[in-house]
């Protein structure tokens, strides 16, 4: 990829990576969710993304916006519980940001993270430190922002540092008490267990790193 801008081709691939991560880790994510949540997270994600996989060939590909908007709609409607609107909001914010853009540079991706994080906080009411996927997305965003979008190999460097930051967020949040999201109903029992949403973001970022740089 060197440092050229990404187009619909890479956006499609990124969505594919997110979906595949959910399929490959369905049982693992649900198992994590069962420790201090209701145990359906992996299954909710996989079931919803399965609908996208079934419709993959017919998704609109006129531009990034149209593609991501359809992904957002399907995610929101078919991923169960509040995960649908939460993850759907991330895709929707990316879609809205990409209006009238044929390609995206690294700064655009950072801006998309900002917009997605803001949207998810608004949708679900979570704040940083509540032990939700927000606490993985913010360090990921900050790591991406450290790399200049005109630097040589910017994507490779950004994906490496972002996947490391996302992975680190699992340990960094482990001893927090969940105030929102998947674990919030278990109160103090959530302390010491990892949040499945945070693990999911970290796993996705690691798979992005592999998919785009190797």
């Amino acid at each position: 990829m060197a440092n050229k801008n990404i187009t619909l081709v890479e956006v499609e691939k990124a969505v594919q990576v997110i979906m595949d991560t959910a399929f490959e880790n369905e049982d693992y994510f649900s198992e994590l969710d069962g420790l201090a949540g209701d145990g359906d997270f992996g299954n909710s994600l996989a079931t919803g993304f399965q609908v996208i996989r079934e419709q993959w060939d017919t998704l609109p590909r006129t531009n990034i916006n149209a593609f991501l908007m359809k992904v957002a709609m399907l995610t929101t409607s078919h991923v169960g519980g509040s995960s649908g609107p939460i993850w759907g909001t991330a895709f929707m914010r990316a879609a809205i940001y990409s209006r009238e853009k044929d390609d995206l540079n690294l700064t655009d991706i950072v801006n998309i993270f900002d917009s997605a994080i803001e949207g998810i906080m608004q949708r679900g009411g979570a704040q940083p430190g509540d032990k939700t996927l927000i606490d993985a997305l913010i360090p990921t965003r900050n790591a991406l922002a450290q790399v200049k979008s005109d630097a040589p190999d910017c994507w490779k460097r950004a994906l490496k540092t972002a996947s490391e930051a996302a992975t680190q967020s699992i340990e960094d949040t482990k001893n927090l008490q969940a105030k929102r999201g998947r674990q919030c109903f278990t109160g103090e029992r959530s302390i010491g267990t990892v949040d499945p949403g945070i693990v999911a973001v970290a796993t996705i970022m690691n798979n992005m790193n592999k998919a785009f740089t190797q």
Partner: peptide, 17 residues
């Protein structure tokens, strides 16, 4: 209701865009 609100607020964002 959470479900109704989330659906309508997302639709609002999409329409505003």
């Amino acid at each position: 209701y959470q479900g109704d609100k989330m659906a309508w607020q997302m639709a609002e964002e999409m329409a505003l865009a």
